[in-house]
């Protein structure tokens, strides 16, 4: 299972613009699937994907891959916002992408702990207690936003 540190040191991976574009497509799909799953978990909440954030990471600039926009997910209950999910970064050593959650109960990190191009393994942890990692599920996410 290849990791980001292997990828960035080209240990088993050819790092070029084509590879980076494939990784970005995969990241976008994982984010879309994550947002869809969250909307399915909480059908009573509003799930707005209208806003976006810019993805422009150092390795993209190094290989001339232009910035792209990724969707932000706003969760609301009776027009009151209960959580915002923002993709924070893909090429983070130790993980395979991170989405930040600002919620009623504080800041949380939603992290994919899978290898490159593998089935996602999303986890959630409070930003102030980053070792308190739990698998992301309806229950653990509800603990953050409700």
């Amino acid at each position: 299972m290849l990791s980001v540190i292997e990828e960035l040191t080209e240990d088993g991976v050819v790092l070029d613009a084509e590879h980076l574009r494939a990784r970005i497509v995969d990241w976008r799909m994982r984010i879309d699937d994550l947002y869809r799953e969250i909307a399915d978990w909480f059908p009573h909440l509003g799930a707005d994907r209208g806003d976006t954030t810019v993805m422009d990471e150092p390795v993209m600039r190094a290989y001339g891959v232009p910035p792209i926009r990724l969707p932000v997910l706003r969760l609301s209950e009776a027009d009151v916002e209960v959580g915002i999910l923002v993709p924070r970064g893909l090429w983070i050593i130790g993980v395979n992408g991170r989405v930040d959650l600002s919620a009623r109960n504080g800041q949380f990190l939603i992290i994919d702990r899978s290898g490159l191009f593998a089935q996602p393994r999303w986890t959630i942890a409070p930003a102030l207690d980053r070792l308190a990692v739990e698998p992301l599920s309806r229950t653990t996410l509800a603990g953050a936003i409700q």
Partner: peptide, 28 residues
């Protein structure tokens, strides 16, 4: 050895990473 390489890359100002998930690395 990979972490050693990362350490050397940082020391020489040459890393392409967006960030480092320090708690995960500590576990490893």
């Amino acid at each position: 050895i990979r972490y050693y390489g990362l350490r050397n890359g940082i020391a020489h100002g040459a890393t392409l990473a967006t960030g480092i998930d320090v708690p995960t690395i500590i576990g490893d």
